[in-house]
């Protein structure tokens, strides 16, 4: 080995400094705010009418997202294929085999509504370098602030649901995402999708109410009749429908540290394109690694001091030697 013993010790010493400071505690998942708002999407009572998509476009003043128009032709119809910079909310369909019966995994179909899940411990907030993604401390709504956003798109890169979407077609584009109709909530109105939903498949309430409601539905036996509330959990307007065979857990209760938008469905959630996420949030995992290395900036500071000490010594000595040589030559 080319390193002599002394230099080797120096290097390992530096590594030890790094390691010693690296005992920061792992950061746990964040907890939801007690007044956090929530939304329940129940795929078994969704009729796929896309009224929520129309309502969303209207409430957020979003443009037509046409994937049918010929290039160069004006868009003729709103036909989004995914969440995008023009579509914040989309109803997608799962189809298998002959797709005859709704809410059946095989030879059946199911709808699924996709938009921002408003994670309790959102990774987009954790990764944004300039706090352009923020969580409302009371409602827990994840909002976007274009006035500070630098457009690095790390939020879109990291989001497990591929929600934030940058406007690639615009020279001065911004990120677009569902913000739980924050502007409407402030005026005491419901989110656009919830207001337009004719069956209560998109249901608004606090996160707690939503969880209770979802648990109630899970406790029903398939085939029983249940009074499904419309628009809000505590709404007097209800409609009766038979309970389907639900998947036995609530998607979003624990996924990635929990979300404020939760899902119920009869078809396995991964079939509906909802990723299978660990209970530990990606944000906490990333921040644990980052904080282990950078806690209080102690380890980096020590490393820098150590480097300064060594370079000072080596560079100085070399410079002196050179001067001496020059003197000798003269």
């Amino acid at each position: 080995m080319s390193l002599d013993r002394r230099n080797f010790l120096k290097l390992t010493g530096g590594a030890a400094v790094l390691g010693a400071a690296g005992t920061a505690e792992a950061r746990p998942n964040k907890e939801p705010s007690p007044d956090a708002v929530g939304m329940l999407y129940d795929a078994t009572i969704c009729i796929g009418c896309k009224a929520c998509m129309a309502g969303c476009k209207e409430a957020n003043d979003m443009p037509i997202d046409s994937n049918l128009a010929e290039p160069g032709q004006p868009p003729i119809w709103d036909t989004p294929i995914d969440i995008s910079d023009k579509t914040l909310n989309i109803i997608k369909v799962y189809k298998q085999g002959s797709a005859e019966v709704k809410d059946r995994e095989f030879d059946g179909f199911s709808f699924i509504k996709r938009h921002c899940m408003h994670c309790v411990d959102a990774v987009c907030i954790s990764v944004c370098p300039v706090n352009a993604m923020r969580k409302n401390p009371v409602t827990g709504v994840v909002t976007y602030h274009p006035e500070v956003c630098i457009g690095c798109r790390y939020c879109a890169f990291a989001c497990p649901y591929n929600v934030p979407a940058y406007e690639f077609e615009k020279p001065l584009g911004q990120i677009r995402k569902c913000q739980f109709c924050d502007h409407r909530l402030k005026q005491g109105q419901l989110p656009g999708c919830v207001e337009h939903c004719p069956t209560g498949a998109s249901l608004f309430g606090t996160r707690k109410q939503i969880l209770e409601e979802a648990r109630r539905r899970l406790s029903m036996r398939p085939g029983e009749e249940y009074e499904y509330p419309m628009q809000t959990v505590d709404s007097p307007h209800k409609h009766v429908a038979t309970v389907k065979q639900y998947q036995p857990y609530i998607y979003g209760e624990k996924e990635g540290g929990g979300t404020q938008v939760m899902m119920l469905a009869a078809v396995p959630y991964d079939k509906l394109g909802l990723p299978n996420l660990p209970e530990k949030s990606a944000a906490s995992r990333s921040e644990t690694v980052q904080h282990t290395v950078y806690k209080g900036f102690l380890a980096p500071s020590l490393l820098l001091l150590f480097l300064l000490y060594i370079t000072n010594k080596t560079v100085r000595r070399e410079q002196h030697e050179e001067e001496r040589k020059q003197l000798e030559e003269e």
Binding site: S126, C128, V130, C152, A283, S286, Q290, H291
Partner: peptide
């Protein structure tokens, strides 16, 4: 304005 938790910030 910055978010010290962001890896991107540190990187930038």
């Amino acid at each position: 304005q910055v978010n010290p938790n962001s890896v991107m910030l540190e990187l930038a």
